[in-house]
């Protein structure tokens, strides 16, 4: 059964990579663009079906909902990204953003496949995780992380298409530094202190660059790119849908903690980080409520939210945070 699940999840990963290449090819061959991008979308849908099947097979094999370690949560994360993109594509008709979804999801599959073999095995649950609350608390959070990731990435695309190129490049730099830090954090021969210096230092420098770029590009009036405003709208819609899911996840986490440990809030690092994420997006929504908000600033806030989300979800395990949620760490 485990072999079947691995085969299906590998098929999901491979089809997402094929979809990525097809989206890239569709942008090169303008004549066959529509046909190729439709094929790419079909391949991405196949990837979604495969990852759904992999989750179901693993659930049957483990006789529980498969959310107990990083590998299982990454499978659900990939499912969330694919489901979100397919829904967004259905509503907004966005084949031009297919490459972004395919790139993101194939990176998630690669990350999952690089995890140690112990992560791929079905391991018994530790006592604190033996609860139905696990099924209620974790999936909404993972799906909200997927939506927030898409929101942040689409915000970068919005910056790029609205001619805020310097700001977009600075945002790409901050995302790249975060991902590089998390990647280095998985390597045993790289000291954790170096990884932390890279993450915090790199993020601080990138944020300063973003600030300078936003200031320098204040006067830019975006030329009429047909989809630019739509990207801003999509980023916002993703956040407004993810925010209730995030809130639900945090609240059910508090209810579970009270049920298991007798305290609904312990200022555990993961709890604190989820609060930081919630506060970041609360700031986004408050900024958005102001009548004179600027699209580019909103996109930058969405990207900062993306960094915070990644830090809460992945960085927590790779940058040496401790606490009650450390079962997500790679051992």
């Amino acid at each position: 059964m485990l072999t079947a699940e691995l085969t299906i999840s590998n098929a999901a990963g491979i089809s997402s990579i094929i979809a990525l290449w097809m989206f890239v090819i569709s942008s090169v061959f303008s004549r066959a663009r529509i046909v190729i991008s439709r094929l790419a979308l079909a391949t991405l849908t196949l990837s979604f079906l495969c990852v759904s099947a992999a989750i179901i097979v693993r659930a049957v094999d483990a006789a529980r909902f498969p959310i107990a370690n990083l590998y299982e949560s990454l499978l659900l994360f990939a499912w969330g990204i694919l489901a979100s993109y397919l829904v967004l594509n259905y509503v907004y008709k966005l084949p031009e953003l297919g490459w972004l979804a395919a790139l993101t999801v194939s990176s998630v599959f690669l990350c999952a496949s690089w995890l140690p073999a112990s992560q791929h095995e079905i391991s018994p649950l530790m006592p604190a995780l033996v609860s139905n609350w696990r099924t209620i608390h974790v999936p909404p959070l993972i799906v909200s992380y997927a939506l927030l990731l898409i929101a942040g990435l689409v915000a970068i695309v919005h910056l790029w298409t609205s001619q805020h190129r310097k700001t977009a490049l600075s945002c790409i730099l901050v995302v790249a530094i975060s991902l590089l830090s998390f990647g280095l954090g998985t390597l045993k021969n790289v000291p954790l202190s170096w990884v932390q210096v890279l993450f915090w230092g790199g993020t601080a420098v990138s944020l300063a660059l973003i600030g300078i770029a936003v200031h320098a590009e204040t006067s830019i009036v975006a030329p009429a790119h047909p989809a630019s405003e739509l990207y801003d709208q999509i980023s916002q819609r993703c956040i407004t849908v993810a925010f209730p899911l995030l809130t639900f996840g945090i609240i059910t986490g508090a209810l579970w903690a009270n049920h298991a440990w007798g305290a609904y809030w312990s200022w555990d690092p993961k709890e604190s980080m989820s609060l930081v994420t919630w506060l970041s997006y609360a700031t986004y929504l408050h900024l958005r409520a102001q009548k004179d908000y600027r699209d580019d600033v909103m996109s930058v806030v969405a990207v900062i939210g993306l960094i915070v989300t990644l830090l809460t979800y992945l960085g927590f395990n790779f940058l040496g945070f401790g606490g009650l949620h450390s079962y997500g760490q790679i051992t």
């Binding site: 993961k270 609060l275 506060l279």
Partner: peptide
């Protein structure tokens, strides 16, 4: 958020 981040 920044203070909570420091605390985490």
């Amino acid at each position: 958020a920044l203070l909570t981040l420091a605390g985490a």
